[in-house]
Design a protein around this nucleic acid. Structure first.
Lengths: 345, 345
DNA sequence: CTGTTAGCGCGTTCAT
DNA sequence: ATGAACGCGCTAACAG
């Protein structure tokens, strides 16, 4: 592979000039520009980005830590984040952060702190608090995103959405439709631990809005499952076994809601005629299932976009970033589709 | 951020010794080992991976080019690839290669060739042939994966599966169940172009196996849609409008098949009683939908694993890699689930 | 067992 | 407008 020097020699100029010409800095005579470009093309020269990163003390990559990229929600985030990063001439390193111990992977964090990536976006709820906090003093730019508890780390930049509000919207929608016997299917990252629930804020919001209608959700009507379609299906089956009288189910995310839809289908329960189902987050698939899922949209792509841009702004020049940009909390919105309606009677 | 030199000075040794101690190379007295480690810890030293990469002329990252990470198939590949890479102490750069023009993104390729990643896995069917071929002479290690046409680039290392065989298995399964009026829903990356089909090998295999049973698939029974659930649903609806007599549908991938399932559900057609549906690839979701989808499993995770390991082997030492490892073609397998059965009559 | 020297390939002064 | 020299932080080869 040819280097800068190779080009310089063949073009009869110095390395500095080649650098200037190729990066369009400074000025150079039309003749040398042509010459250098010609030689570079002939040689198939490509700048060594590693060397450049070392010299510039910057790296063209940022990293994003998920719990699980198999979850479509995270895929969508990754997709949007990659596009946003690319628009800013950056690459995206993906890191599945979840380890058996459930904490952020230290090797990964160290690598990032080792300037492999010049910044880091951490998604998820209550993942790896410790290791993450240990990281921050190291001066690595970090942006939290889609964080469930908005105020867990008040000092860390965060782009998220009001999950409490999202839960409220879901609850209010069902209650306003007239539902009173409502079940909840909630997700857990450790379903093997009895009572472990991941989506605290959504749940709290849900319960709060329902309380305004004097609706309570006793324990048999709250079922917890692993964060997947299958988990939602199983949880819903348990719920309906325990209490077949519920007329609506709110799930703390769309995957679980889709599982609920399937459980209903298996039991020949018509949605929304006999059972309403509402999800949360608004993944693409929620629009593609049948019946199409009513859900609370949190604009995942904007969150990804906002996270990447905030991170890169912070890296470019922290001083430029207004304090107000350090804590962005989006507003969720109800998306009415076909899976909810008034109760049968 | 402290550097190697900082540690060296404080520990009263040279940089080389610090490097040796920290990387456990060479030998050092117990005393200096302890000292160096102590100082490194106190300082919160983390090696600068960019500098290391420059010095070693290696980078700890590999890149994978997809067409679309929103497709669960690619997510699953990414998930497995990331794990495999990590086991070999590498990071994964994800690149959504699809551009509006449909070709591989040159900027991305150049970056990789710029040693940002030391190798590259390219997924997909007929994506970016030109740019990719232009890339190869540059000496960048490349592994093709999940490639539809096994022999398109005979000289490029490739880990894939026999898609032709996969198509055959799907067709044979339906035919053996007794189906004779069979529809096909095929995917396209450019559905706006009339007649554009992506999954050639699968289609050919499908047709071939059906021909053995004297089954042909005339044009109205072959519908093409965009590679998504929605695309499958729409294509299936067109197909059933044009010919309501089909008793089975083979889709060229699972997303399309899931769309077919939904189309059937909307039309109150019972699966598999009145209509059988078979998919291809075996994404996780295929097991989670209801009825669970019968499909042809291509062991995506193993493909990802194999691709990463082959690439890394090639990078470590091409001479070590036997020729037989340069072209791995996996064998697909039928997974019988609930969406297929004998025709009603 | 440890230190010295010499790069890795590029960007960046500061002269010229 | 152009070039020489130095530095980025680390590893490798050799010397002691």
């Amino acid at each position: 592979m040819p280097t800068l020097e190779d080009v310089a020699k063949l073009a009869g100029v110095s390395g500095a000039t080649v650098s200037n010409v190729l990066r369009q800095r400074g000025a150079a005579s039309a003749a040398t520009i042509a010459k250098v470009q010609q030689v570079a093309r002939d040689l198939g020269y490509r700048p060594n980005l590693v060397a450049r990163a070392l010299a510039e003390r910057r790296s063209p990559t940022i990293a994003v830590f998920f719990t699980n990229i198999l979850n479509p929600f995270y895929s969508e985030f990754a997709f949007a984040a990659e596009r946003a990063a690319r628009r800013r001439e950056h690459f995206l390193l993906i890191c599945n952060a979840a380890t058996p111990e459930g904490s952020l992977d230290t090797a990964y964090l160290n690598a990032v702190a080792g300037r492999l990536a010049e910044g880091l976006i951490v998604l998820g709820s209550d993942l790896g608090k410790q290791s993450l906090l240990a990281m921050l003093p190291a001066g690595v730019p970090v942006v939290l995103s889609t964080w469930e508890e908005t105020d867990m780390y008040p000092t860390v930049p965060c782009v998220t959405v009001d999950f409490h509000k999202a839960g409220q919207l879901a609850g209010a929608h069902l209650a306003e439709l007239g539902h009173r016997r409502i079940g909840i299917v909630a997700g857990s990252e450790h379903p093997e631990i009895v009572g472990d629930v991941a989506h605290h804020a959504r749940l709290a919001g849900l319960r709060k809005s329902l309380a305004a209608y004097d609706v309570t959700v006793p324990s048999p009507r709250l079922q917890i499952g692993s964060d997947s379609i299958e988990g939602g299906r199983l949880a819903t089956n348990r719920l309906l076994d325990l209490d077949p009288t519920v007329t609506a189910i709110a799930a703390t995310n769309d995957l679980l809601a889709i599982g609920a839809l399937q459980a209903a289908a298996e039991r020949q329960i018509r949605v929304p005629d006999s059972l309403s189902v509402i999800g949360l987050t608004g993944i693409w698939m929620s629009a593609q299932v049948r019946p199409a899922l009513t859900t609370i949209d949190i604009a995942t792509a904007s969150l990804a976009d906002g996270s990447v841009n905030l991170l890169l702004d912070l890296i470019d020049d922290p001083a430029t970033v207004p304090a107000s940009a350090l804590r962005v909390v989006g507003t969720p919105a109800l998306v009415r589709r076909a899976s909810t309606g008034p109760p049968a009677r």
